[in-house]
């Protein structure tokens, strides 16, 4: 714009050329950077499938880890352990997260308290997972005297709450006010309106949020390092250390044994497939949620 006053025809053509050149350079740069960014993703996934698929077999899903030096073995106990910890985390995290989301959307809208809580949720979302692990260690493990599945579940549930809170709130915000007013007009009390009208209308989106939070914590290793701790054997006891898939992948990845590296790749493939499935389900649900709750 500053170049406008200069008006000689030659410089104007040069300016025009330069402008369109810059434009093309930026276009090329942004296309190039997108390709550059997609490359590691495809590399990671490709390598994961290549390395992981060759090591996946029935033993992986049915056997517990073999002792050092022996071939074979699997990660059955880690898969089950992960499931136990994740179910525990969901049982604590999902109700609290949805409740907080309901408060933010239905009670705290526009209030200072609501805004502060929303802000807290956003900030809590950015707390490093390892710090949550330390907190769970100090709160549960120290009290109990040993590592436990319970501590792992609590650590993961703390990580789930803020994500679920924010998605629930956003999804409830898409429910039209008219729907709620219709319920009030029928004389239905507020709690019943929230449960049977607002939450039900927004449920696809809220399920999406829960699954996203689930997928996020499913791969978390850092908060489990000194809470669930890992276990080479079968364990169902919530008060005892328990194996978890990400932990086992970490242990095997940093070990010096080729056989364990192979299993780590297989474990990573299983983990990523689980996450991929839930993220894809989320895409499907999210599409529906927008159709139902939107406009």
């Amino acid at each position: 714009m500053s170049a406008l006053p200069k008006r000689s025809p030659g410089s104007e053509r040069a300016l025009k050329l330069r402008r369109s050149f810059t434009n093309h350079v930026v276009t090329a740069l942004s296309i190039g950077s997108t390709i550059l960014v997609l490359a590691p993703l495809l590399l990671i996934l490709g390598y994961l499938f290549y390395k992981g698929a060759s090591s996946l077999n029935l033993d992986f899903f049915t056997k517990i880890p073999a002792p050092v030096g022996e071939t074979g073995g699997g990660m059955a106990n880690s898969i089950v352990g992960s499931a136990v910890v994740l179910v525990l985390a969901s049982l604590i995290g999902i109700p609290v997260g949805i409740g907080a989301g309901v408060y933010l959307s239905e009670y705290g809208r526009g209030q200072t308290l609501g805004n502060v809580i929303r802000f807290t949720a956003d900030v809590l979302n950015g707390v490093p997972s390892i710090v949550v692990g330390i907190a769970a260690y100090a709160l549960v493990v120290v009290k109990q005297g040993h590592f436990s599945a319970l501590a792992g579940g609590i650590a993961l549930s703390i990580m789930m709450v803020p994500t679920i809170t924010r998605t629930t709130e956003e999804m409830l915000a898409t429910v039209p006010l008219a729907v709620r007013e219709a319920a009030y007009g029928l004389g239905i009390p507020k709690w019943r309106t929230v449960l049977s009208v607002s939450l039900r209308t927004a449920s696809p989106g809220i399920i999406t949020g829960c699954m996203l939070a689930f997928a996020r914590v499913a791969g978390e290793t850092a908060p489990l390092l000194f809470t669930a701790f890992g276990n080479q054997f079968w364990s169902w006891d919530l008060r005892q250390p328990i194996a978890a898939l990400p932990l086992q992948i970490y242990t095997y990845a940093v070990s010096p044994y080729d056989e364990w590296h192979r299993l780590a790749w297989a474990g990573a493939l299983v983990l990523i497939l689980l996450i991929m499935i839930s993220v894809t389900l989320v895409r499907i649900f999210a599409g529906r949620g927008m159709l139902k709750g939107g406009n």
């Binding site: 990671i44 590296h261 983990l271």
Partner: peptide, 23 residues
Amino acid sequence: ISFLTEFLAAIPSVVYGLWGVFV
């Protein structure tokens, strides 16, 4: 493409680490 770029965020840290160590 936006799905793929956001999928990068869904890959667990430990899998990045595994890929980092060996590739």
